[in-house]
């Protein structure tokens, strides 16, 4: 893990809501799919860093897919190539990609970010997969994904949710990887548990340190004596659906 300064190489709009930032990849900072960085801009008036999934990486670059939701993401969107960010990473434990079964990747909104790198990893492994991406309206970020094995659901265009696509293709012998809003993740988890299919869910939570020291990003997980709180930042952000103790 490192905390270093990294240069912004490009900022590019993906519709109104979303944009992507390409950062210079700090030397020796290597990410597995599902890991994240926490960043801070140089003149930040904020106290805390902000965590972002690494959507994908190349030899020299890191790609972040970002949704404008607050002041920080608004400011970041206005940054220019050459501006610098303080980048801490790689953080967290990513997806376990050691399985062999067909993978179903289901993402909602900006939650599709870690699935991009995951799909690239599965491509490299030659593993069979299908991406189901859901959006409220704008679906520009889906363009980052390969067109083959991709299905898109837009809530403003069709009835239902992206989980309805999952229902159609969910069957025994697959493995599900999901990231998105909490209601979506809860629905995915129960569908998978009912179908007896293993799932890996990437969670989002407010974080302070991002490295496991402050225990601020708690998620209830089952254990022998009931439930314990694990840390989304360092025990996760990816958890197995079966282990989560959500009502």
């Amino acid at each position: 893990m490192q905390c270093v300064t990294s240069k912004i190489l490009s900022v590019c709009d993906l519709g109104e809501e979303y944009y992507r930032i390409i950062l210079e990849r700090p030397e020796n900072m290597v990410f597995s799919p599902g890991q994240f960085v926490s960043v801070m801009d140089q003149n930040s008036p904020d106290l805390l860093r902000r965590p972002f999934s690494v959507a994908s990486q190349t030899q020299r670059e890191i790609l972040l897919l970002i949704k404008e939701v607050g002041k920080m993401t608004k400011r970041l969107r206005k940054s220019s190539p050459g501006d610098c960010l303080s980048v801490m990473g790689p953080l967290g434990k990513g997806f376990d990609t050691s399985g062999q079964n067909k993978a179903l990747l289901i993402g909602g909104g900006v939650g599709i970010a870690p699935l991009l790198g995951l799909s690239q990893e599965l491509d490299a492994q030659g593993r069979d997969y299908l991406c189901l991406l859901g959006f409220r309206d704008e679906c520009e970020p889906a363009k980052l994904f390969k067109k083959t094995n991709l299905r898109i659901h837009r809530e403003t265009k069709e009835p239902g949710f992206v989980t309805d696509l999952l229902k159609e293709v969910l069957q025994e012998g697959v493995e599900v990887f999901a990231c998105g809003p909490l209601p979506m993740l809860k629905a995915v988890r129960s569908m998978c548990m009912e179908a007896g299919v293993p799932s890996q869910l990437s969670l989002e939570e407010k974080m302070a340190c991002g490295i496991g020291a402050c225990i601020g990003c708690a998620v209830p997980v089952k254990n022998n004596s009931g439930t314990v709180y694990k840390k989304v930042c360092s025990d996760g952000p990816v958890f197995r659906g079966e282990e989560l103790a959500w009502e």
Binding site: K206, A208, I215, C217, V228
Partner: peptide, 20 residues
Amino acid sequence: RKGNPPPRLHETPMGLLNSI
């Protein structure tokens, strides 16, 4: 100790509220 249920953090201008 199990600690408190989330949420445990809330950022304020240059401050942090915690309930760990």
